[in-house]
Design a protein around this nucleic acid. Structure first.
Lengths: 135, 135
DNA sequence: TACAAATTTGTAACCATTGCAAATATATAA
DNA sequence: TTATATATTTGCAATGGTTACAAATTTGTA
């Protein structure tokens, strides 16, 4: 799917920087932080600034085409996959894994039965512990 | 239940500051941040410092008797209720609500079926949106 | 081409959190 | 009790991720 069209369809005017950032998110499932995106895009867009990345991520999150992952204390991470899935942070190797959430539990109404009448815009499921490789 | 015994049973040497902080967490379900705890305890313990609160919260979290809630970008919040439940942040009034998670879904194995072999120490479920009062 | 609006950029500030060493409190041994 | 070692607390300085802001650049439009 064309990234430029994807941005436009989601109400975001495409620019060189925005396209490059969304491309990066969609092709790197590493949940990058701002510094990692800066280092990665610096070569192809030498003038890119961290402020632009912060602004763009905020814009993406507002329009629902990126998720803010706040599982790490220090850094915000971002994910271009906005389908409901969980994130597991290994407290030993610091790697961040996606994990699948059983489809039959995706029914938010049932899972969060006490939130009737609340307008839920974003759901995040975080786990911390030790991963298989580090055990 | 006596807070001093509760700390001891969880491997934490009780001190005036630690007891006061755990007492505060257990009697105030407001998910306070460090500043709020500092302001609240300053009167009864005039010498208390923010560093002590940070250190103590880290200790509580490590021993599993408090949860770190990182749903807000700026501030860390803490919860003395470590049973699995969700947190909802209203993006309008900024209030943080607890919400009940259906008991039959508490089976982590089923919910997180793809995390077999991982040692899960902490699970957090966050939602953001607009609360009933603000709609 | 000229002008207006939107976007990007760099720098300075902000501020929550941590590092660190001195001060204080607590536990232990003689 | 007194002396000594250990643990805890404290205040201040430093860190570093994020944001504010205004200038510079790019884009859209007439």
């Amino acid at each position: 799917m064309n990234t430029q069209i994807y941005l436009t369809e989601n109400g975001i005017k495409p620019s060189v920087q925005r396209i490059a950032l969304m491309d990066y998110l969609l092709t790197h499932k590493t949940h990058p932080n701002v510094d990692e995106m800066y280092e990665a895009l610096h070569e192809q867009i030498p003038t890119i600034s961290r402020t632009t990345i912060y602004n763009t991520m905020k814009l993406f999150v507002k329009h629902g085409i990126a998720s803010l992952i706040s599982i790490e204390e220090k850094n915000a991470r971002f994910d271009g996959d906005v389908s409901l899935h969980g994130h597991f942070l290994c407290q030993n190797c610091n790697q961040l894994y996606d994990f699948h959430v059983n489809e039959k539990l995706l029914n938010i109404e049932e899972l969060f039965s006490s939130l009737d009448g609340y307008n839920i815009k974003d759901t995040q499921i975080y786990c911390k512990g030790i991963c298989k490789n580090c055990k």
